[in-house]
Write a protein that binds this DNA or RNA. Structure first.
Lengths: 214, 214
DNA sequence: TTGAAATTAAAACAACTGTTTGATACAAGT
DNA sequence: ACTTGTATCAAACAGTTGTTTTAATTTCAA
C-alpha cells in the first residue's frame, strides 16, 4: 500500500508526473526520453515501469493528472450571458493564452493541441473527452453569431478557422519568429494577437452569415 | 564519375530520392526510417550513404529535387492583374490544393509545411528560400486588399490567419475527420473548403481594414 | 525488533536505427 | 588481360532508448 505521509513513494510518482508533463509537452510523446524525465525527476529509470508500467502508462498518468488540475471547459465563456461576440473574444483569448503561456493550468490544453496535430495512442480518449467538448462550446458560439439558419457545416468550418489560427502561433512558433521578427510571445502581445484573431474572425463570421443570406 | 547511359547508378539515386520524398513527407525527417526508404527503392541501406553521405544528405537531395520539380512561387496569383480579392482566392485555393492533394508537383509545399511546423536542420534554408517568398506574395495581396494605410503588422497578422487556417486542415487531418465525420478530402470538397476560407478571410480583412479606419 | 511488502537503484537486456566495412561485381580505359 | 574507379550488397558496428532483472533498501505493521 502506498504511504500516507509525504514520503518518497508518492513523491516519486508526483515528481515523475511533473517532469514528464513538461517534457511530453515540450517534445511530444515520441521524442520525450525516459532518461531525461527521470533525470529531471531525480529518480531511477525503473521507477517509470514500477509506478506506471511503462512510458505509455506514464503518459496516461500525465493526461489524467493534468486533466484534474485544470478545468478544461470553456463554458464560462458562454455562461456569462454576454453577447455571443464577446463570448467568442473570451474564448479566443483564453484558448490562446492556454496555448502560449507557461501556466501549469494550461498544460492540458497543450497536451490536447499536441494530440490534435500529432496523435498518439491516447488520441481517441483525448479528443472524445476534451477536444469534442471544447469544439462543441465554440460551435455553440458560432451558431449564436451566425444565426439560427446557419448550417452545421458552416458552423464547423468557422470553428476550425478560429482554431487553425490559434494553433498556428503555437505549432509554428519558429516560423512565426522568422517571418515576423518583431513578433513577441509576451503576455501583452498575446492579448493583441487575440484581438486580431477576434476581429478577423468576427469579420469572417459576418461574411459567412451574409453569404448564406444572399 | 557517374555513368552517362541510363544504368543502375543514376537509377538508384533517383529511386532513392523518389521513395524518400514520399516517406519524408508522410512521416517527417525523424520518423522516416532509412530501412523503409531503401526497401521501397529496392536497394541497399549503404546506398544512402554512398550516394548522399547519410540521411541528412538524402533529405537535402529530396528538397533540391522537389524544389526543381515545381515552381513554388505564387506570383501567377498576382501577375494576372485581377482584383486583389480574386488573387487571394486563387492563392488560397492553390495553396490548399498543394497541401492536400497527392500531386508530385505539390511535394515541395508539403515539405515546406512540415519544416514550418516541425523544423529540421534544413529549416533556415527552406524558410529563407521558399516560405519567405510565399509569405511576401501573400503579404502583397493582403496589402492590396487592406489598402495603403495598413500597417505591416496587420498585413502579417492577416497572412498568418490565412496560412493558419490552411495548415490546420493538413496537419490536424485526423482531428478534422473526428470532429466532422462528414468532411471529405476529395478534390471537390477541397474546393468548397477553399471557398469557405476565402469568404471567411475576406470578411476578416474587411473587418481589420475598418478597424484601422475607425 | 523483526519480517513482509513496497520502493529504489544499477546493471543487463533487447529492439531499433543510422553508419561503416569489406567483399564483390561491373564497366571503361590502358 | 589488367587496372581502376564506380556501384552494390550483406554483415558488422555503434549509439540510443524502453524494458526487465536482480539486489539492496526502506517502510510499516505485528
Amino acid at each position: 500500500m502506498r504511504n500516507l505521509q509525504p514520503d518518497q513513494t508518492t513523491d516519486t510518482r508526483l515528481r515523475l508526473i511533473e517532469s514528464a508533463s513538461e517534457i511530453f509537452i515540450e517534445r511530444g510523446f515520441k521524442d520525450a526520453k525516459i532518461r531525461d524525465i527521470v533525470e529531471q525527476a531525480k529518480t531511477n529509470r525503473a521507477a517509470v515501469n514500477y509506478h506506471f508500467g511503462g512510458k505509455e502508462g506514464l503518459y496516461a498518468a500525465v493526461l489524467q493528472h493534468n486533466a484534474a488540475l485544470a478545468i478544461q471547459d470553456m463554458s464560462p465563456a458562454v455562461n456569462e450571458a454576454r453577447a455571443p461576440e464577446e463570448q467568442m473574444r473570451f474564448y479566443i483569448r483564453t484558448f490562446l493564452k492556454r496555448l502560449l503561456d507557461d501556466n501549469i493550468q494550461s498544460r492540458m490544453s497543450k497536451l490536447i493541441a499536441r494530440e490534435v496535430v500529432e496523435p498518439t495512442a491516447a488520441f481517441d480518449l483525448v479528443v472524445e473527452q476534451f477536444a469534442v467538448p471544447l469544439h462543441k462550446t465554440l460551435n455553440g458560439i458560432m451558431h449564436a453569431i451566425l444565426g439560427p439558419n446557419a448550417s452545421e457545416e458552416s458552423v464547423r468550418r468557422c470553428s476550425m478557422s478560429i482554431i487553425g489560427q490559434c494553433l498556428y502561433y503555437q505549432r509554428a512558433r519558429r516560423a512565426v519568429q522568422r517571418l515576423d521578427p518583431d513578433f513577441s510571445y509576451s503576455p501583452a502581445n498575446i492579448d493583441r494577437l487575440a484581438d486580431h484573431i477576434s476581429d478577423f474572425s468576427l469579420g469572417g463570421l459576418r461574411a459567412v452569415a451574409q453569404q448564406r443570406a444572399s
